[in-house]
Design a protein around this nucleic acid. Sequence first.
DNA 1: TCTGTCTACAGTGTCGTATT
DNA 2: AATACGACACTGTAGACAGA
Length: 353
Amino acid sequence: MSLGKNQELNEREREILKAIIKSYIASGKPVGSRVLSKKRKDSLSPATIRNIMADLEEAGYLVQPHTSAGRVPTDKGYRFYVDNLLQTTKLNKSDQEFIDQSIFQTDSHDSVMERISQTISQVTDNIGFVISPSLGNNLLRHIEFVHLGERMILVIIVSKSGLVQNRIIRVEEHFTQRDLDETARYVNQNFSGCSLRFIRNDVLRKMGEEKALYDRLLKNFILLCSRGLIDEVSELDVDIYLDGASNLITKPEFTTSMRMRSLFKTFEKKSKLVKILNECLHDKPGEGVRIIIGSENSIPGMRDYSLISSPLTHQDHNLGSVGILGPTRMEYARAITIVDYITKLYGQILNAN
DNA sequence: TCTGTCTACAGTGTCGTATT
DNA sequence: AATACGACACTGTAGACAGA
């Protein structure tokens, strides 16, 4: 056998491993030597293939669920496949059309994020997620308030990264458009480049320090903040958009209720999920698509899953992450292409604004 | 002689069906 | 519902053969 200390695989071993992984990804069933032999053009006998499979198993790339079963890839096998054997493909036309159609029909920031996670889950049949810094943490370039009528105000926030976000808030107090314009002007002059959360906290602190400096404009801003602009009770620094958890129910490897229970328990608390994703991802701008396979994940409840993610950036600002969460048996080439395409699409949407 | 590959065969686990 | 049974798929191993 060729598997020496450096664990390098020869051409034939690589071919067999690739064929096994492709077949397993397609069928979800352990792959036997006879099936593989029939599929091959060079007509290697099943016995020869079995010898190679035994070598690959010994080296940790494959595993046998039971004595008389075929082989299934291990996480190490998937990692080798992703790093060395995967051929990057172009996004197929129907996927591209579906994604374009789904994402470009929206305008507000929230709906784009929601639509991205929905689109990913629909097109890949896995869980799609988007993590973005919460509104309260965005660095402010410009803020505007528009009086919409009976106690409703439209808030337009332009963040430093160029992102435009609109949010309608309801207020108990009466504000005239003039009040709102003055407040916006005050905030823009004094707090440009700061996060909404910082501004709110800073203003509160100043108000507490010296009541004499209590300013009507500051009071207005605090009132506006408390009406839904910043989620005060949230422990989270990010907003998370997630869609498609139910897709996993149909996957054969998740038919055992224990695995499903473990997954949904993880999803129960969004804050826990964000912590997990943050720990797993550590996305950095310019890093490109990142893949974490099964046991490479440090969280025990996530070791049956793979994560494919990419940082969302605009003008060197990190705006969060987008990605796919699914079983380790995943169409990696397609998933990577889709995440990459959506990341670029997101950049186009920001540039268009 | 050594290595790689082949055929043949016995052993094992799974799955569907019949029986109790 | 539990058990028994046969068909099937898959494995590992022994021994034969060909080529370097």
